[in-house]
Design a protein around this nucleic acid. Structure first.
Lengths: 339, 339
DNA sequence: TTGTAGGCGTTATCAT
DNA sequence: ATGATAACGCCTACAA
């Protein structure tokens, strides 16, 4: 094992202190409350720090002070276009304040999330951010025991305890239902996400179908083959929903990836969008406006979620008690050409 | 009041040891080398751990052992479609082995990168991953001094010292030049990235223009207004390159976002793609195949870079000396309809 | 197989 | 304003 022996190489606080002819505490103060160090010492220390390239060891500092400038974030995935802006805003905002972000993906699996949470807990983070409210029991227990701020993002359910920063997926369904009903569509369909475990999509579906049912409109719910790539799932859905004798006249896809597949399949099948079949997406992914026809979709507050979560954590770390423990954000229908 | 100020609340190794009636070392071994603990003790400890929900403190462990299971990664951005697959693969591969990833964005700024590297160094990571070979002097010095494995990704220059996992951007330009020349285009153009600081795009441009110059073909290089959104930059580029008397017959865009803008502008302006003006992108972003016409582009090994970087780090942590310190990967031209 | 002693690099606390 | 000392939670080294 090429394992380093202890303390190999790195400059330490003690060494800086010795070089500067002061105690370790003075150097420590130089970093954490410079105003409590006399200007003369300050200059002397600054010089030694510059010469040696000393960087304080955060792990040691955190151990001693029980205050780690690190937070964990679990998202369903990093590489999709949905959560990326949240991660970006979260990481940037916290980074500006000297905090570091630990990242992990759950792939919509509560078990993977549990593993990630357990791993994060080992770092004694200042806070933990998770996505949605679907956790394993073990996760719930760990989070409770850990006694650290937990933020649930991309969701909003007033009845839940943890801090929430997001929106109601059910309300998104309602929003869509109203837009659809106002335009007089008679045979709408909802296409679920091919990624199994996306329970939030189910909530959108529920809101959509329930409200339309109240208005006397039945929604055809289509479930793609499990774990089909979303684009292909969208294509197949469009084909299948137009194979029968009474084709649908609108499809609300669980996300824009599916919708893009649907749009392309329509083009190939000669189905005119939106005349013959309108298409509504969810996510407002960057490519939505580049498709033909341009995709009408619902835009979630992705960046705002990340930034607000970060600000909440910073406020708490700063000793403040943010006035709004539940933060409800809203989605917006972006009307383009497909609906 | 004997209120604890320091280790508020968390269960510690010592407490677990006391409850199980063993020494702290036995509990430590229970986690790090279970086979060295007798089955009887193992069971006893496992029970206490389960009851208390104890999770080892990684920071303390790292401090004591000088072996942190944490690595830092700096990418230009998280939310774009380019680096996301690299981050995803990197994080997933390391996560499977109990490592955590610290993430930060540089936005193509060497100064931001420097800040991120300095912050990471404070955590004494097992390794550091950066993007490309453009760093400030201070960064280079820090990395040298820190004496930890540094991986440069998304780039490959045989003459450089650090571990590299990526490809030559100049070669990408060569690849494109050959594809373009073989098809007989006479008035090609290159559109640079609107994001200032994307020096790798310049290298692609260089390879493209130099090789075509050798074949007697001049390349018109177009520089978008700085920091214009890429999609709009692409639109403007397409318009401007067709405004003159002698329009170009092919545009190689610095990335697929720009190319998508170009494609749409062409459609609006009635420019037929590829007959009147062919379009070549870079990145093979997920939406490339959803555009009309489907975008011909160059696919970089984004996921492979992340996974290989992770595997390299794991191998080194395991005491192995990977045989290939420089790992050259290749890009591929994905021929669709726009070229 | 198990335990003891000491230290990893930093900060809280209490003196001066 | 500065310093001495004792933690923080864990692991290496060595001993039994």
């Amino acid at each position: 094992m090429a394992r380093k022996r202890r303390g190999a190489g790195r400059v330490t606080l003690a060494e800086v202190a010795a070089s500067a002819g002061v105690s370790t505490m003075t150097v420590s103060r130089f970093f954490n409350s410079p105003d409590k160090v006399s200007p003369a010492q300050r200059e002397r220390i600054a010089q030694v720090v510059a010469e040696t390239g000393y960087v304080p060891n955060q792990a040691a500092g955190g151990l001693a002070s029980a205050h780690n400038r690190i937070v964990g974030m679990v998202v369903p995935n990093i590489s999709g276009p949905i959560f990326a802006p949240t991660i970006q805003a979260f990481s940037d905002t916290l980074g500006e304040h000297g905090y570091q972000v630990l990242l992990a993906s759950s792939y919509f699996s509560a078990e993977q999330e549990e593993r990630a949470v357990r791993a994060f807990l080992g770092w004694a983070p200042a806070a933990l951010v998770v996505t949605s409210h679907f956790h394993t029991e073990a996760t719930e227990r760990m989070l409770e025991q850990a006694a650290l701020p937990v933020l649930e993002t991309w969701d909003y359910r007033p009845e839940r305890q943890p801090i929430q920063i997001g929106f109601s997926h059910y309300e998104v369904g309602v929003l869509a239902a109203e837009a659809v009903h106002a335009r007089g569509y008679a045979r709408p369909a909802f296409v679920l996400n091919s990624a199994t475990g996306d329970l939030s999509a189910l909530e959108r579906c529920q809101g959509f179908t329930e409200i339309l049912a109240q208005k006397g409109v039945d929604v055809l719910v289509h479930t793609p083959a499990p774990d089909l790539a979303p684009f292909e799932a969208g294509e197949q859905a469009m084909q299948q929903l137009h194979a029968g004798a009474t084709p649908v006249d609108l499809i609300f896809f669980a996300n824009d990836n599916l919708a893009a597949g649907g749009l392309l399949a329509a083009q190939h099948a000669g189905i005119r969008v939106p005349e013959q079949c309108a298409v509504l997406g969810f996510g407002d992914y960057p490519f939505a406006r580049m498709l033909m026809p341009r995709l009408t979709t619902i835009r979630p507050p992705a960046s705002a979620i990340g930034e607000n979560a970060a600000r909440w954590i910073l406020a708490v770390a700063d000793g403040q008690v943010p006035e709004a423990p539940l933060e409800r954000l809203t989605c917006e229908v972006i009307v383009r050409d497909s609906l």
